[in-house]
Design a protein around this nucleic acid. Sequence first.
DNA 1: TTATGTTGCGTGCGTACGCACCTAGTTGTG
DNA 2: CACAACTAGGTGCGTACGCACGCAACATAA
Lengths: 156, 156
Amino acid sequence: MSSAAAAPPDPDDPGVRAWSLLLRAHAALVPVVGREVERGAHLPLSWYDVLLELNAAPERRLRIQELGSRVVLSRSRISRLVDEMAVEGLVRREPDPQDRRASFAVLTDEGRAGLRRAAPIYLDAVRRHFTEHVRPDELAALRDALTRVLAPHEGR
Amino acid sequence: MSSAAAAPPDPDDPGVRAWSLLLRAHAALVPVVGREVERGAHLPLSWYDVLLELNAAPERRLRIQELGSRVVLSRSRISRLVDEMAVEGLVRREPDPQDRRASFAVLTDEGRAGLRRAAPIYLDAVRRHFTEHVRPDELAALRDALTRVLAPHEGR
DNA sequence: TTATGTTGCGTGCGTACGCACCTAGTTGTG
DNA sequence: CACAACTAGGTGCGTACGCACGCAACATAA
């Protein structure tokens, strides 16, 4: 049980500072990377994430809900995203014969092609804006720490 | 060289994995912390950030533009945020006599009181969801690394 | 079978946000 | 002085997103 937090508000706590930096880094970097991907590969960053997850999935397909949780989007949002991407031919909706409520989002060949075009641009942007400034040991610490932070929230 | 894996991105690159984790951690944690603050202190997370920055500023006031860049929001957004908070009495707009285009956002006493009420809730949420899962040395690495990552974007 | 819940998705709607543009005040140049 | 160039801030508008709700398809009880 968390004991009484009778301690005074301490915004200079090292943990809070790290948290704050995480927020700022996210706010500063994501728009920049998104811009570069959109400019260079002509697709939104969220589309890229979807393509990436589908490509990594068995059979290159996922149920809508599962896809949403992997890219950390609401079901409503991912549902519309898949619609929009289907219009562009990057994914395809496919009904599940076993459960007729469900449907899969399936990566099309065109989707894979888009992913291949976008990947170098995305990776380059991430490298220049992020990885390049972080030492290998810091990267390892970051991965370990964030993995543990994330663990309690895996379910959605 | 197995069959598949033509050219898909390299998600096993340690840098990209760390970046991806950062995105996921942000996406997972921010809504949760925001909820807790809103529930416990009856104010949005973005309001809390504004109160915090103003409280830390000299004279407890900042020009709109400067405030926006500190909380990483666009000028349009911060302008409306200040309006909304002024309606609730947490901040006050004050013209700059030196430059009549500019205006300050000034923290009111009520604003400070709100901050004092919200701070323990916010800090507790950050601790339970973030700090608690990270070792001190990892926190330090995180702060150092993110500070360097952020540096090129300070001017926003 | 019918009745009762549960799950997987889709849709209407409100909110948060940034961009493009506009206005007023300030600074510089002749 | 006029008159352009620049700057702080506000506003109209489009977009991305989640929530609340609705609906059909499953699952289980009786």
